[in-house]
Write a protein that binds this DNA or RNA. Structure first.
Lengths: 225, 225
DNA sequence: GTTTGAATCAAACGAACGTTTGAAACCGAG
DNA sequence: CTCGGTTTCAAACGTTCGTTTGATTCAAAC
């Protein structure tokens, strides 16, 4: 058959194809709304392959997340380390801290430039779906990063109480998660004003907004005035 | 039987009990993860009652949302009208615009003070679950409110482009949605720093953050400097 | 008392789900 | 070729899902 696609060119492992397909479908439809039959069909694999390679649907999700989150969090901490090393005793710049937190994740959008971002939407879904079993997964993957960035932000904004740092960090993550999940719908909901295909464009809008939010006066200061 | 609970005291309609139970369970576990059997059991109603009163699970969800969203959006617009009427020709105050947008929804938390907020979490879920059929539902219920508030914000912050207004309004909604969904988990994730049981406390942290974010300089200004 | 329409009920429907099984297919090592 | 372990496969498991059905209950209208 002449149209057989390059028999010498190897296609990825079944395991890898399952991760790719699951990532795509979980992101598009949500985790619970995606059946393993849909995943294995998209991966051109047998239904039982999921349980052979991963053990269960939940462990498949965990593997999908871990595959992408690990390098992202490593880069986050690497960027933060570089910031703190470069700034000596001075606290690192707020914009750069936020950029170190947000950019490594949003940049995933640009990996497959031609198609709508998949993993970023999945992360947004995981960040908002939690409550079932995903909650523990997220805590496990992000606890260290959150702690490091909370400390860095606390040094950069010493007038804020730890409670305020925690609140604003969560607001920050919420903004990112919501934006990631709805990037395909943002254009429609804003009547074409928000074009979220470009990661740099999103960052351009998001960083100043969040940085200004972080720099808002502490509620303690306001009460004292 | 002496323990028969007050036979003269009428309990709500089956229809109402279904709405209550669905609201609670949808909020706790998510929509797709909640079965109609669980809803009807919690409502002490027959399984077929859902289809008799609403027609389908999706229409039940729509009814649950509509029951709460209608008065909330009415109050939002009422507060906005009052702001714009009181400020005459001057643009309304930013903090008050944001408060008019956020407070009516977050206040729902306080309706049943003793129990964890239910509807607010459901709204957060609907705002993040969309992609299936919920998307159209949300657009239908919120299009007018979003448009009105975008116009008000544009008047209060005339230096921002319509695109920037749209982006920041979405960031604002994302912050609210994420906070609402995770209010039960926020305390744990922040190691006890965020106590989100009190709506006023949440607003106290959220309004300054978002107001400062909205007041961030336009990217146009920054490029010009 | 009879009728009528709304409301509730137990029971079942077919479909889809996550998971398990046991046998076939594959493939490098002996 | 034969063997042993890994991987794939078709088929079925038991469960749960949203939905439907047809009989039954009930309260007001006649």
């Amino acid at each position: 058959m002449p149209d057989t696609p390059l028999p010498t060119e190897e296609r990825p492992d079944t395991r890898e194809r399952l991760l790719d397909a699951a990532e795509q479908l979980f992101a598009e439809r949500g985790v619970t709304a995606t059946s393993l039959r849909a995943v294995t069909k998209a991966a051109d694999a047998n239904l039982a392959a999921v349980h052979y390679h991963f053990g269960s649907k939940e462990e498949l999700l965990s593997a999908v997340v871990a595959r992408r989150v690990r390098p992202i969090n490593e880069e986050r901490l690497r960027l933060l380390d570089r910031l703190q090393a470069g700034s000596g005793d001075r606290a690192a710049d707020l914009d750069e801290i936020l950029s170190a937190l947000l950019l490594p994740m949003i940049r995933e959008t640009g990996r497959n430039p031609e198609r709508v971002p998949t993993f970023t939407r999945l992360m947004g879904r995981v960040l908002t779906d939690m409550g079932t079993g995903t909650h523990a997964l997220v805590v496990h993957h992000f606890a260290e990063v959150l702690q490091r960035f909370a400390a860095a932000l606390s040094r950069a904004l010493p007038h804020l109480t730890p409670e305020e740092i925690a609140w604003r960090l969560h607001f920050c993550i919420g903004t990112m998660a919501f934006t990631l999940v709805h990037s395909p719908h943002l254009a429609e909901m804003s009547r074409g004003l928000c074009r979220s295909h470009d990661a740099d464009r999103v960052m351009e809008q998001m960083i100043p907004f969040l940085a200004a939010g972080f720099q808002a006066p502490s509620s303690i200061d306001e009460e004292a005035s």
